[in-house]
Design a protein around this nucleic acid. Sequence first.
DNA 1: CGATACGTTGACGGAAATCAACCCCGGTGG
DNA 2: CCACCGGGGTTGATTTCCGTCAACGTATCG
Lengths: 246, 246
Amino acid sequence: MPSDINPGLLPLVRKLETVFRLTPEEQKALTHLPVHFRELPADQDIVRVGDRPSQCCLLLEGFVHRYEDVGDGRRQIVSFHIAGDIPDLLSLHLPVMDHNVGTLARSKVGFVSHQSLRALIANHPRIGDACWRDTLIDAAVFRQWMVGMGRRDAHARIAHLFCELFVRMRTVGLAEGNSIQVPLTQGTIADALGLSQVHVNRVVQALRSDGLITWRARVLTIDDWPTLQKVGEFDPTYLHVVDEAA
Amino acid sequence: MPSDINPGLLPLVRKLETVFRLTPEEQKALTHLPVHFRELPADQDIVRVGDRPSQCCLLLEGFVHRYEDVGDGRRQIVSFHIAGDIPDLLSLHLPVMDHNVGTLARSKVGFVSHQSLRALIANHPRIGDACWRDTLIDAAVFRQWMVGMGRRDAHARIAHLFCELFVRMRTVGLAEGNSIQVPLTQGTIADALGLSQVHVNRVVQALRSDGLITWRARVLTIDDWPTLQKVGEFDPTYLHVVDEAA
DNA sequence: CGATACGTTGACGGAAATCAACCCCGGTGG
DNA sequence: CCACCGGGGTTGATTTCCGTCAACGTATCG
């Protein structure tokens, strides 16, 4: 690691390096982006439907979700984001937000103007490609959730989500053994998978009593990975992870 | 329109121009891509799960869908594509296909090597941006389908799909008045929306008898746009259409 | 003109929603 | 120190969409 790296954006470097090694120049350019750092509390919106952002939000620590409100207090969460993600990268090319982005837990973020990002990408096309690629993986995750909501029952959906979160967090070094820290509630999971909170509760209990997972105090532990994977019909190909300790 | 435009790729030009006007040079570069044209029959796969394509497929006429098979003969369709779309553009950055792409009707397509596309984008960054933007709109459509499957009942889902198809086809000039030609069957719609074919049938009949649509012989007519839109909770913002005759 | 794919209809069953309590636990303030 | 509070989790009873199964109708095409 070169000496003139600004450490604030390391999670981002780490994330992009899950695709290919960045050159020292690229690392430098990336970490020297003009960033406005902020700590945000849990459950705070970052951008909302209808907004026309002029900056993107780099998630450095914490947990973010994207969601859409539908009538009658119901809502659908469309994605979860972890350190290294840029949850609203799409605002670089789509002027109007069609969904909300908000924290799920206390989070540390960095705001970068579209202008700076565009300049970075213009000067370092490989970084642009990596960002594009990242939005494509985002879309791949959407597709998997669609398959789940369309054609899998609640057991498979929940097991699949747990598998996905675990693999994604392990990839960027956020797993400790078979455990990950997730600030999710059963209600949150319900809103993500198109289920009711009550039903999520029953299924989670089943997964627990079948010995597949432990989940207490925001810590999720995968106790039986092969079976959980089978129950969730989880095939990590769609995440296009390069390392693969799996 | 400059005189040295190769007319074979006009649907693509038209599609990209729904974002911004292309310069004559850009038009020329685009339409002079080395393309291998082909006519494909209905229900033929173009790329399959696990493939590592070295080319992309430009859809010039017809209808394409992307889908994933899940166990037991079930499947989930994740998107429909019309003239001007590049259904497998993602293969430019994701080496392995995580879903299938296939025709739904007789279609005319053009194959372009990744190499040529990369060169085009390198020389004409705006075209690259337009392509990236297009994959982002793809993802926006995924999100809407997720909201539908997670939080909307069958009536709303089907109405929403009809609205979406109509707006998308009108945008590229494929609507005739309030009608569009769609090669979809009720079973196809079921696989797209996470429903059974039988239930789609019942709901479509309800939409018909409520005077919202007519649908016969592959022609779908919107008879009551305001009500259909309301039933489907359809807000076209997510399609990020520039023109807006809506 | 029969094969085949698509659409239609009815009876029945089931996964999950809804409704309504109740419990548990950590935080907080009197 | 304990009462209170509130968010999250748990449980049971009931309801509802929607799936499944099965049959039959209908249209298009070789």
